[in-house]
């Protein structure tokens, strides 16, 4: 049991990061904090993929006679794309927050909802 827990320590940490992100995302009313939570949530997934590719005792995947075991490079490559997507999402989110701030003069979700209902 202990071995199972210790052996998967990277996954446990990833789950913690993911849950912190998701919790921030759900519980905060501040739009900036929501975006921060979203970014953490995405980062956790990126970490998850990178962990997947790691092979025990494996080395960087550059073919050389000295090494026999290589880590899987594919997940890391995939994550390059995912990071780009994540950055784009966050950037777009920031842009929206700026526009929301301009037109509502607030970035608190409950205040914005109230303003919308009054209108």
């Amino acid at each position: 049991m202990l071995e199972y827990v210790a052996g998967h320590v990277n996954y446990w940490l990833i789950i913690v990061v993911m849950m912190v992100g998701l919790y921030t995302l759900i519980s905060r009313t501040n739009l900036m904090k929501k975006l921060a939570g979203l970014a953490m949530f995405q980062t956790a997934v990126i970490l998850f993929y990178v962990s997947l590719g790691k092979v025990k005792d494996g080395t960087v995947p550059i073919v050389d006679d000295a090494y026999e075991i290589y880590s899987n490079p594919l997940p890391q490559v995939l994550m390059l794309t995912a990071i780009v997507v994540g950055v784009a999402t966050t950037a777009l989110g920031f842009a929206l927050v700026i526009r929301i701030k301009e037109s509502y003069d607030s970035i608190e979700e409950d205040e914005i909802n109230k303003l919308d209902q009054d209108a």
Binding site: L25, L31, K34, L38, F41, Q42, T89, L92, G93, L96, V97, R99, I100, S103, I112, D116
Partner: peptide, 13 residues
């Protein structure tokens, strides 16, 4: 803007 933001959050999740 708020509709788009809400969609962004949920869509990204």
């Amino acid at each position: 803007l708020t509709a788009s933001f809400a969609y962004l959050i949920l869509g990204t999740i």
